[in-house]
Design a binder for these strands. Structure first.
Lengths: 336, 336
DNA sequence: ATGAAAGCGCTAACAG
DNA sequence: CTGTTAGCGCTTTCAT
């Protein structure tokens, strides 16, 4: 049987309360007493029982993170940022992989209800604003990555989809492109919507016509990107560049060009989003937008924990992190 | 205030014990009574309090997974297998990223001591056999991936390093190579040791001489592989093929060849291990050994949970999963 | 089939 | 600075 707090107390000749105080270095304990307690702890190889602590304190110092697919680099890097920061601040991280199924995302919310976790971080959730707001109403704080909702209990961290998308189009424009296609993620995602918005905004600023024929949906995965590109090519509407809403789809488009004998970038320029590692390895290398993935996770986690622990409420609820266009060979004749 | 079990009991006009029985569908409860209880649960929107349950039952139904780096595809796919299976069996997964620091790995063991988790899965741990054995002595069960220790409380899942390494060398031999270099991971890792062993075994079987000059260490990362390849090339000892103990290092070697103007596979054949996604995208594509990453995580988790729940003890403690050599362009003149 | 009651191991008033 | 004590919310004998 593992020894417990009361055993330590007896051995050190003090009360349980004192042991607890030493354990949580709370209030003042006589250094000599503390020394005795520490010694007893050592001798008994005592370890506090987490569940008892949780029950009593009503906090678990555990954060749940819900992501669509932990194998996707974008998500795993975010998780790394979360875990790293959480660990540093004394929190554990429960990982919830929703396998791209919205129902599963919803199921994981149960962890909050039964107090397994103190809070939840939802990465690019597919849940409605309404659901999230309701959730936030009940909780002290929840965290959102890649989604923005104004609410006292919601901490958000995201990047400027509209801004960097417009920048991508600007870059392609400067490279001489006038007919630029756009491959979207699944339309329900905020990211899809906003990246499309940035695309349109940039066209407008340059007085380029918006052609609906040049928009296709690729569902954020490689296969979808491949098919979207085939459809675009099959229309007979001329275009010389493609902006894909993420690297996976850009990779698919890349392959579609290869299969169709279209030279990148000479005949078709290509830009993706996320700066997945693979983008550096394909030939020609893929232009993309670097997303501060680790920082998204780390920043959000830090702010979220602060809010959870009742720090000064004047903290920013919403943080926008910088993304950076990385021009590589796929969109520039001049680069390797 | 959230409602609790006793509130449900009152509302349903039964005792707390009955509610508990319904909740855990234990023993026989009159269907009509159960119905009333369920109704009360619904009306009060009751959710059992996890910590109380844990304290009382002394189990958390939570598994900790310790990995070196969650961003590495090899690990994230294993985690996916673990999480998926755990979820299916009603377990949560706490993720522990040791950032390649052995001390951190050790720290995470504390989660077991304080009963935050019911068991731990250690993926390619750097801890000594002795430490692991001691740990297993104290616990009901722990899980190991990529490491084999015979112990009643240790469940292992791994692949046949020696076997597939010998197969790789056999393949290179058949392609006509007689001088084959080997780039090792860090020497303390079992994987490194066993892959080297397979390499040697295959040489021996074919009466090829073992040349220590053709062995270099690459620490399992791309940079290390790059440097190891440079060192190999700098020795002036001729060789026509390289087997790298993982894809990361093979990628580094790939790049070193590119920089040195050495044509793959014409002047240098190259094979890695893991079948990371990138290997398909580099040009020429990289031959590798497909590791059943998801299955490693999934299989281990299932067996571990079974053992934890006291299933028939005649289960296999050690499971060896099949790896598969995938020949691509980097080691075969005939393949694309 | 159901209820009463005793804790699981810890913390936080409160009292001294 | 330290001790006493009352639970946190649930499960589980042991009765009935």
């Amino acid at each position: 049987m593992d020894s417990k707090l009361i055993d330590v107390a007896k051995r050190a000749g003090v009360s349980p309360a004192t042991v607890s105080r030493v354990l949580n270095n709370s209030s003042l304990v006589n250094p000599k007493t503390a020394e005795r307690v520490l010694q007893a702890i050592e001798e008994l190889n005592y370890h506090p029982h987490a569940a008892a602590k949780h029950l009593r304190s009503q906090r678990t110092r555990t954060i749940g993170v819900i992501v669509q697919d932990i194998n996707v680099a974008y998500f795993s890097e975010i998780i790394k940022g979360v875990q790293n920061t959480a660990y540093r601040l004394g929190y554990k991280v429960i990982i919830c992989d929703s396998d791209n199924q919205p129902e599963k995302e919803r199921e994981y919310l149960g962890l909050l209800m039964n107090r397994t976790v103190d809070t939840l971080i939802l990465v690019a959730p597919s849940l409605s604003d309404e659901t999230l707001t309701e959730l936030a109403d009940k909780e002290q704080a929840i965290g959102l990555i890649g989604r923005r909702i104004e609410h006292d209990h919601i901490v958000c961290c995201l990047t400027d989809n509209i801004g960097f998308s417009a920048e991508v189009i600007g870059h392609l424009f400067e490279e001489g492109h006038r007919r630029i296609a756009y491959i979207n993620g699944y339309p329900e995602a905020v990211d899809s919507y906003e990246r499309l918005e940035g695309y349109m905004k940039a066209l407008k600023e340059r007085m380029l016509p918006f052609l609906p024929e040049l928009i296709e949906n690729g569902n954020f995965n490689e296969q979808g990107g491949y098919e979207a590109m085939r459809r675009l090519l099959g229309k007979g509407v001329p275009f010389t560049a493609v902006y894909a809403a993420n690297d996976e789809m850009a990779l698919g488009a890349h392959k579609a060009c290869l299969d169709a004998g279209i030279a990148i970038p000479r005949e078709m320029a290509l830009v993706g989003v996320d700066n997945n590692r693979i983008t550096q390895y394909v030939i020609p290398s893929l232009s993309t937008v670097d997303q501060p993935k680790f920082a998204l996770g780390a920043t959000l986690t830090e702010k979220l924990i602060r809010q959870l622990e009742g720090e000064p409420a004047d903290e920013e609820r919403v943080t926008i992190l910088e993304s950076k266009l990385i021009v590589r060979a796929s969109s520039s004749a001049r680069r390797p």
